[in-house]
Design a protein around this nucleic acid. Structure first.
Length: 205
DNA sequence: AGGGTGATATACT
DNA sequence: GTATATCACCCTT
């Protein structure tokens, strides 16, 4: 208890939080910290952009056509990481939400680096020259996975453990949360299931 | 605007 | 089994 000045802002998100519906969780994830233990160092970033994906009513969701080997983690109860490989070279990182069997998740689309930016730049093979490049570290779903070193090994990992987890960080006022159509999909485009922090510099677009 | 890259799903022999 | 289309992306022109 010696150094236990409990910083409320860094409290881990709970199972109850993740067990809510994807559409409830998605906007609430904005301003939270995604934390990764990386070679006993901490890499972290504030979530600034997300998209919700939900099984039955969302043709763009991996779970729209039922369970497969690839998407089975999405059917876990909320609080697990769903990581999939796409376009031959990238990974995308999702937070499973809802109750077991529902097949929902929230895609993390962009982070604002908080801790370990130097390491992230190395992971991304960027040259730290200008602030311009800093914005390029984790402003996209594929990029943030490279920056944090997230790949298929992390598929199905619990967010209540110590390898990867999320904590409280900043409170984002509702008037600073923008809602739009999702990016990069062709089906169910009309659904306004993308959420991002207004005027943040680290958005994917 | 187009190419790179490979897993996955679907549609065929 | 094999063939083809698609894909929740990123980078370069």
């Amino acid at each position: 208890m010696s150094e236990s000045i409990q910083d409320k802002s860094l409290q881990k998100l709970t199972r109850d939080f993740y067990r809510q519906d994807a559409l409830s969780v998605a906007p609430k994830l904005l301003g939270k910290l995604l934390v990764k233990n990386y070679n006993s160092r901490i890499l972290s970033g504030m979530i600034v952009e997300v998209e919700a994906y939900r099984g039955t009513d969302d043709a763009a969701s991996h779970t729209f056509n039922g369970k497969t080997k690839r998407n089975e983690v999405m059917y876990y109860e909320g609080g697990y990481l769903y990581v999939y490989f796409t376009y031959g070279m990238y990974h995308c990182c999702n937070v499973v939400t809802g109750k077991a069997g529902e097949g929902e998740a929230v895609l993390i689309r962009a982070l604002q680096p908080v801790e370990g930016a130097e390491e992230m730049i190395k992971n991304r093979h960027l040259v730290k020259s200008a602030d311009e490049r800093m914005k390029n570290i984790s402003n996209g779903p594929g990029k943030l996975c490279i920056a944090l070193g997230i790949d298929r090994k992390h598929n199905g990992i619990s967010l209540l453990g110590d390898k990867i987890y999320m904590t409280e960080y900043r409170n984002i006022k509702s008037e600073n949360i923008i809602t739009t159509e999702r990016i990069g999909i062709s089906k169910s485009k009309h659904l306004l299931w993308r959420f991002y922090i207004k005027d943040n510099e680290f958005l994917s677009r």
